[in-house]
Structure formats: C-alpha cells, structure tokens
C-alpha cells in the first residue's frame, strides 16, 4: 500500500516536472517572436474581447491558415495539455489503483476462492466416498472371512462330532465284536471239546453195531485221540 502511494506521488511529481519544462522552454522562446509569441498576442486578444467561446489556441484567424504551425507541434498548447494530462492521468491512476483494480481483483479472488473451495470440497467428498467404498469392501471382506470362519468352524465341529460318534460307535462295535468273537471262540471250544466225546461215543456205538462188543472206554478214547491228532496234523 505504501508502495502504491509512493508511486502515485512519483507520478504526480513527474507530471508537474513535465508541465514545468515546456513553460520554461516557451518562456525562452517568447522574445524570439516565434509561434509562442503570436499565441500570447492572440490569447490577449481573446481574453480582452471575450467574443470567441471556442477559440483556437495558437491560431490568429480561424479558417485554415495556421500561424501556430502544425497543431501537434505547436508549443503554445503544450503547457495546457501537460497540465491537464497530469491531472487527468493522476486521477485515473488514483482511481484505478485505489478503487477499480482492487474491486475487480476482489471479484476475481472471490471467484478463485470459491472455485478452489468447491474443488477442495469435491475432492474431499470424493475422498470420503472412496473411504466409504474401501470401508464397505473391507466390511464385506471381513464378513466373508467371518462367514468362512463360521462355516469352517461348523464344519470342523461337525467333523469332530462325527469323528467322535464314529469312534465311540466303532469302539462300541469293537467291544461287541470282541464279545461276539469271545462268545464264538468259547462256543467253538465248547463244541470242539464235545467232539471227542461224541467221536468216542460214536466209535463205541459203531464198533458195538459192527462187532457186537463194546470196546473198552480207554482204547476207544486213545484211538480217537490218535485220529484227531493225525487230522490236526
């Protein structure tokens, strides 16, 4: 802000310096009765009569003949032009730097801020939605994992139960089998133990029928044992 002030002051000083320079120049040109001299005379005339409202500066007679020469090069008009240029451009610079440019700048800044804010908000929203998406996917994965775990657990539990049942069943069956086997073997043993008696009795009966005499219990038993042992061999 102080910078713009300094520049404003510098511009004003510049304008004043420029306005003063031709004043000196035309001052020195006056005695030589050049165009400036004519102007002064004409100006005096204009001021004294006051007849012309719009009067050509540096021109003796209105209507084509230029005593002041080519108007842009007529030094008589320089002072007035420079003074008014300094004033008007100074005012323009002041208005622009103080009022108009900050005003437009503020509008642009507000828009820029608004756009930036909206973009930030949009990106934040997007981040939020992405986070939600990730959270959703995570939850989904977790749920899936949990479901898998539950299913696995259930399967394992069922497997274990089945195993246990099977084992207990097998154990029970084994026990029953063993019992049955034991029973069979005892029955078999019993049956086998009866075989010798039956064989002895049968042999005595057969011999009695064939021979008519009943052999001695002792002989029969030994004979049967002999046969049995041979068969067993």
């Amino acid at each position: 802000m102080t910078k713009t002030w300094k520049l404003t002051v510098a511009a004003a000083l510049m304008g004043l310096a420029l306005a003063a320079a031709p004043a000196v120049a035309s001052d020195s040109a006056k005695p030589s009765s050049g165009p400036a001299g004519a102007v002064v005379a004409q100006q005096d005339h204009g001021a004294s009569t006051g007849a012309h409202v719009a009067e050509v500066v540096g021109e003796a007679a209105h209507g084509g003949e230029h005593k002041g020469g080519f108007p842009p090069f007529n030094p008589a008009t320089f002072g007035s032009q420079l003074a008014w240029l300094a004033v008007s451009f100074g005012v323009l610079y002041f208005l622009m730097s103080r009022v108009t440019l900050p005003r437009i700048g503020r509008i642009l800044e507000e828009r820029h801020d608004r756009i930036a804010r909206d973009l930030a908000e949009a990106s934040q929203r997007r981040a939020e939605s992405e986070a939600a998406q990730i959270a959703y996917e995570k939850a989904l994965t977790e749920a899936r994992g949990k479901a898998n775990a539950i299913a696995g657990e259930a399967r394992n539990r069922l497997n274990a139960e089945t195993e246990t049942n099977r084992k207990s069943l097998e154990a029970a069956l084994t026990v029953k089998l063993e019992e049955a086997e034991a029973r069979i073997s005892t029955t078999k043993t019993n049956a086998l133990s009866h075989v010798r008696g039956i064989a002895v009795d049968t042999a005595q009966t057969i011999v009695n029928t064939l021979v008519g005499t009943t052999p001695a219990q002792q002989d029969t038993e030994s004979a049967v044992d002999q046969v049995l042992s041979r068969k067993a061999a």
Binding site: D27, Q43, V57, N74, Q81, F89
Partner: peptide, 30 residues
C-alpha cells in the same frame, strides 16, 4: 488536431493552462 480553448483558467509566465478540447477529452476518457 487543433486544440481549441474553451475557458481560460490560469496563465503562468505566458503559458496558458486553459481548459481546451484536449482537456475535455482527457477528463472524459478518465
């Protein structure tokens, strides 16, 4: 291109700072 004086305001050492059509346009432009 002629500068036409509308009003004589101030004269310093023979140089006029009068209000001219140029002045009017400068003010008008600003």
């Amino acid at each position: 291109f002629e500068v036409q004086r509308y009003a004589d305001l101030l004269r310093v050492s023979g140089v006029s700072f009068s209000f001219t059509n140029a002045s009017a346009f400068m003010i008008g432009i600003v």
